[in-house]
Simulated assay, not measured.
Amino acid sequence: MELDKSPEQVRELLRTSRQPISLDSTIGEDGETRIGDLIEDTDSPEASELVDRQLMADQLRRTLDILSPARPRSWPCGSGCTTGRRARWTRSARPSA
């Protein structure tokens, strides 16, 4: 296979390809695309998963609003479905009869 590059161009490409660059560096003709925007973040949840969680949290909030005022406090959500934060399980205070 033959390249349309001179040996000097190949050396320059090899030299620059080994240099670290910032993920904030811009590329493209418009200069608005950041390199970091092109790299997939495998640790972040998918957009559809975030939407599903938000819809479920909204539905849970509406359901809890229907209950009596004391009832929602006795139902903590261990997976943080209403706040997005993991809740701690605690005993709720029960009123004296």
Rank of each mutant, 00 (worst) to 15 (best):
M1L: 15
M1I: 15
M1D: 14
E2V: 07
E2K: 01
L3F: 10
L3T: 10
L3C: 12
D4T: 07
S6L: 08
P7Y: 06
P7N: 10
E8L: 11
Q9C: 02
Q9L: 03
V10Y: 03
E12W: 07
E12R: 06
E12H: 06
E12M: 10
L13R: 04
L13N: 02
L13K: 02
L14H: 14
L14F: 14
R15V: 08
R15D: 12
S17M: 15
R18E: 03
R18Y: 00
Q19L: 05
P20G: 01
P20W: 01
P20H: 05
I21A: 00
I21M: 00
I21Y: 04
S22Y: 07
L23Y: 05
L23N: 06
D24T: 04
S25F: 05
G28Q: 03
E29Q: 04
D30H: 08
D30S: 07
G31T: 00
T33F: 03
R34I: 12
R34K: 06
I35Y: 01
I35V: 03
G36E: 02
G36Y: 03
D37V: 12
D37S: 13
D37N: 12
D37C: 06
L38E: 05
E40T: 11
E40N: 11
D41P: 00
D43V: 08
D43W: 05
D43F: 04
S44T: 08
P45Y: 04
A47H: 06
A47V: 11
S48Y: 08
S48M: 04
S48D: 07
L50T: 13
L50W: 04
V51C: 07
Q54W: 05
Q54M: 09
L55I: 11
M56S: 04
M56H: 05
Q59S: 07
Q59W: 10
L60F: 11
R62C: 00
L64V: 05
D65H: 07
I66K: 04
L67T: 09
L67I: 11
L67D: 12
S68C: 15
P69T: 08
P69V: 15
P69E: 13
P69G: 09
P69Q: 13
A70I: 06
R71N: 15
R71H: 14
R71F: 15
P72T: 01
R73F: 06
R73S: 14
S74W: 07
S74F: 02
S74V: 10
S74T: 13
W75C: 13
W75I: 14
P76D: 00
P76M: 00
C77M: 08
S79D: 11
G80N: 07
C81E: 11
C81R: 02
T82I: 13
T82K: 15
G84E: 01
R85T: 14
R85M: 15
R86V: 13
A87Y: 02
A87P: 04
W89L: 05
W89C: 05
W89M: 08
T90V: 14
T90R: 12
R91S: 06
A93V: 15
A93S: 15
R94Q: 14
P95F: 13
P95T: 14
P95C: 09
A97Q: 07
